[in-house]
Amino acid sequence: MRQIILDTETTGLDPAQGHRVVELACVEMVNRSLTGRHLHLYLNPDRDSDPEALAVHGLTTDFLTSHPRFHEVADQLVEYVRGAEVIIHNAAFDVKFLNAELERAGLPRFGTLCEKITDSLLYARELHPGKRNSLDALCERYGISNAHRTLHGALLDSELLAEVWLSMTRGQDSLLMDIDDKSFSAAGIAGNTSFDASSLKVLLAGPEEAERHREYLEALDKTSGGPCVWRQYETTGTSGKE
C-alpha cells in the first residue's frame, strides 16, 4: 500500500482571487513505513503573498522568483502521486489550489491523478469529536514534538502529519504491539515465545482494599437480589464457565 502525505503553502486563501501555490511537499509511505523518498518544490507564483499568508510561511517574493513555475514541474507531481492514496489535512483547501494550478497547466484535476484522497482532518474529527484537531493539537495529543515548527513549511508539516497519521491509525492488530510482522508465522508467533508466569510479581490486596471489595460485593448482592456471580466464584472456586 503506497500512501502520500501532501501539504501546500499558498499566497492567500482563494485561488479564485488569483492566489497561487508557493510550496508543495509530499512524503511517501509504503506499507506504513516512511521511505525517505520525498517530493519538495518551491514555486514562483508571479505575485506577492498576502501579508497574512507571508506571516504563516515566510516565503518572500524575492526568494520565490528564483524557482520554477508550477507548470514547469507539474509532471513531477503527476508521476509522484499516480496510483497512491494521498492524505491531506483539510484536503478541500489544498485540492482547490492544486486543481486551479493543474487547470492552468492544461492537466486533469488532482483527484483523477491518484487512487484516493483522504482528509486527515475529517478523520481526526471523527476520532476526537469536540476537540481541537489542528496539526499542532494532534502533535500534542500524540506526543509528537513540533517544537521546531516556528513557521509553517510544507515539507515539515507533511513529515509531522505522517507521524500523526500513523499514530491515529495504529489499530491494535494483535495482543503484542510494535512487533515486526516478520516475527509472526502461520502457526503463530515464531521464535522464542515461552512465557514463565512465575516471573510475575504478585501484589496482594491490603486490609483496606479487601474491606472496600467486601462493601462493593454487598452492594452488588443488594442490586441483584441475591449472591452475585463473584460470590458464587468465591464459594465454588470456579467461574461457572467450561
Rank of each mutant, 00 (worst) to 15 (best):
C114G: 06
K96V: 00
G111C: 01
L127P: 02
L155Y: 05
L161N: 02
G83S: 13
E126L: 04
K116W: 00
A124G: 02
A100P: 10
L156P: 00
L135K: 09
E101K: 13
S134N: 05
I144T: 13
N146V: 07
L102H: 09
I144F: 12
R104K: 15
E159F: 01
L135A: 09
K96E: 12
T112Y: 11
G143K: 10
L156Y: 00
L127R: 15
D94S: 12
R132M: 08
R104S: 15
K116L: 09
R104I: 12
A147K: 13
T118A: 10
P129G: 14
F110A: 07
D94M: 09
A84L: 03
T112I: 00
V95A: 06
R141M: 15
N90V: 08
L151K: 14
R125L: 04
F110K: 04
G143W: 12
R109F: 01
L121E: 01
L122E: 14
L160M: 13
F97D: 09
A154L: 05
P108L: 14
F97W: 06
E115L: 10
N146G: 07
I117K: 00
K96D: 11
E126Y: 10
T118S: 13
R132G: 04
K116F: 05
G143P: 10
A91G: 04
E85H: 02
F110L: 09
S145W: 03
A105K: 13
K116H: 06
I144K: 08
A154N: 03
R125P: 05
N90L: 03
A100F: 05
A92W: 03
I88T: 09
A92Y: 01
D157M: 08
G153S: 12
T150G: 11
L138Y: 12
G153Q: 11
A154I: 01
T150L: 14
L138K: 14
I87M: 08
V95K: 11
S134I: 08
E126P: 01
A147C: 05
H89M: 04
G143T: 08
T118V: 15
Y142I: 14
L102W: 08
H148T: 07
L121D: 00
Y142K: 11
R104T: 15
H128N: 12
A154M: 04
S158I: 02
K116R: 14
A91I: 07
F110T: 09
H152T: 05
L107F: 03
P129Y: 15
A92K: 07
F97T: 05
R132Q: 11
L113Q: 10
A91F: 12
E115Y: 04
R132S: 13
L156V: 05
I88D: 10
L102A: 14
N146P: 02
P129C: 13
D94E: 14
E126T: 01
H152V: 04
T150E: 13
G83C: 01
R149D: 07
E126S: 05
E101I: 10
H128L: 14
P108H: 08
H152R: 11
N133P: 09
V86I: 03
E103K: 15
L151S: 07
L155C: 05
D136P: 02
V95S: 12
H148Q: 03
P108S: 05
E115T: 00
L160E: 09
R104Q: 15
F97E: 10
G106F: 10
H148M: 05
G111I: 06
G83W: 02
C139S: 12
H89F: 11
